[in-house]
Amino acid sequence: MLKNDRMRHQFKTDVMSGHIVRMMVAPDALAAKIAQSCGAKAVFSAGYATSASALAMPDRGISDFGFALERCREIINAVDIPVFADADTGYGDLDNVKRTVECYEAIGATGIFIEDQVWPKRCGHMDGKKVEPTEVLEAKIKAAKAARKHDDFLIMSRTDARAVYGLDDAIERSKRYKAAGADLIFIEAPQSSEELEKIHEAFPDTPMMANMIEDGKTPLTKTEDLERLGFNIVVHPNAMTYTQTYAEEQLVKTLQRDGTTKAYKDHMITFPKFNEFVGLDKVNARDAMYAPEKMAQFMTD
């Protein structure tokens, strides 16, 4: 089975297993490889992290489809675990949604979510969000389902209506998105454990995602507790970005202060360990495989 087929199948199986799938959002390919090396079963490629790493900009709809797709592709190619993707609003109208689905499916993503914010969107935990009428995402979900080539390329609906119209409206919208064909449901930014419970009660049989943002609107909840609440996916969208930012800031401050990085070295991976992590030995071994003297075996009469 080819990698793309294998990843989609594996992710769908895991999501439907009744156990929760925990995903870090990887800002880049290296972060995704780190997640994989630490045992992550899947990773997420999402807008907040991509906007930060590619543009050093906030998640306010400045980073576009091209940035998001390419970053997701880099991540997919760097790991051998499923990669799910944030497709924002689908980047336009139904024609854009079709292209978005085709492209993400072609690069090997296991699925995408599409949301009902007005473009330019903003991070789900930021203030000032606006959402489209429900019909807009309903039509996008239908277009996405029609565009996908494989049934196990999962389409998740995301509503940001909780912050605008309240939880009941967000649930009602999500019911309509499910009826339009959404395989997975994501209600962004519930504000309490009770709201998380209420979401599960509204969708007892539909796989759902919870979003755990440090300093966000939703209380940070353990994976095990979210699993008990009936969630099938939990994503940690900003933790790797914040950790990178913090670590790099401390490093630069140290260098500015001391004129050397020595005092920070204990917080770094070493040169040999990093080279090992990114597979230098394997690359060198592959390089040697194709040396001219190794080709003599084929240069016979």
């Binding site: 080819l2 990698k3 592959r286 495989m289 194709y290 040396a291 001219p292 003297e293 190794k294 080709m295 003599a296 084929f298 240069m299």
Partner: peptide
């Protein structure tokens, strides 16, 4: 290029293909 280099590239391309 030389035959050996061409063969190296051919083998490498074959090995790189997943399908």
């Amino acid at each position: 290029t030389t035959p050996a280099d061409l063969l190296g590239k051919t083998k490498a391309a074959q090995d790189g293909l997943e399908n």
